[in-house]
């Protein structure tokens, strides 16, 4: 297929919920909204890299909202993405504690409707902390857990991707990796507290 797929807002939401179309949907979001959203972030002092990182976080947050069924389509997707990106960036500015940016950012931020978005941001930050925690696992553990829990591959299929002898070895490795991860979580009580809402 050489021509990029185009979606209406409603079709895009449906495509995000369909695992087979997710990559096409993400690419469409990038093609249609990345430039304008990045321009906004850069107008508030972000670099090109900042803008692209913020947009990546925005897309992840948007997909999470849609797949949970929480996106209500009250505003257009563009408006929603820009609002989320704006809040992520303001939060990032705050985190960096750069007073010169912060003042300007919060002044502008007041004009945005934020009830839903603030929850998105808070959840996103907690998930980022959890993601960082997973990065303390070894590469092989991350791969095996991603293949099993994110790609939904069977032990037999995972065997085709990793250099293990047989399915039982893969299964044992997966146990160990998951136990290692729950052990890391156990030793980070702040994460457990923060994540209670997400785990519900």
């Amino acid at each position: 297929m050489s021509v990029a797929v185009k979606y209406t807002d409603a079709e895009l939401i449906a495509a995000i919920k369909d695992e087979r179309q997710l990559n096409s949907a993400i690419l469409f979001i990038y093609k249609k909204y990345a430039e304008s959203t990045s321009a906004f972030i850069m107008s508030y002092g972000g670099s090109r890299q900042d803008a692209e990182d913020v947009f990546q976080d925005t897309v992840v947050a948007f997909i999470n909202i849609v797949t949970k069924g929480s996106y209500r389509m009250e505003a257009s997707i563009k408006t929603f993405l820009v609002s989320v990106a704006k809040n992520i960036w303001f939060n990032e500015v705050k985190r960096r504690e750069r007073a010169d940016f912060r003042e300007k950012a919060y002044e502008a931020g007041r004009e945005v409707k934020e009830q839903d978005i603030s929850q998105v941001i808070s959840e996103m930050e907690q998930k980022r902390a959890l993601r960082d925690l997973i990065h303390t696992l070894g590469e092989s553990c991350r791969k095996i857990l991603l293949l099993f829990y994110y790609e939904n591959l069977s032990m037999k299929e995972i065997l085709g991707h990793l250099p293990y002898e047989n399915e039982q070895v893969v299964r044992n490795k997966k146990y160990k990796c998951l136990q290692q991860l729950t052990g890391i979580i156990k030793s980070s009580p702040s994460i457990v507290t923060q994540m209670k809402e997400i785990a519900k």
């Binding site: 997710l22 990559n23 993400i26 990546q56 897309v59 992840v60 997909i63 999470n64 998930k127 959890l130 993601r131 925690l133 997973i134 990065h135 991350r142 857990l145 991603l146 829990y149 994110y150 790609e151 998951l178 991860l181 729950t182 979580i185 156990k186 994460i191 457990v192 994540m195 997400i198 785990a199």
Partner: peptide, 19 residues
Amino acid sequence: ARLQLAVEGIKELGLYEQV
């Protein structure tokens, strides 16, 4: 609860990498 958190995090990481 920790297993739920762990898998939630793995899925989040997977999505982040896919994006």
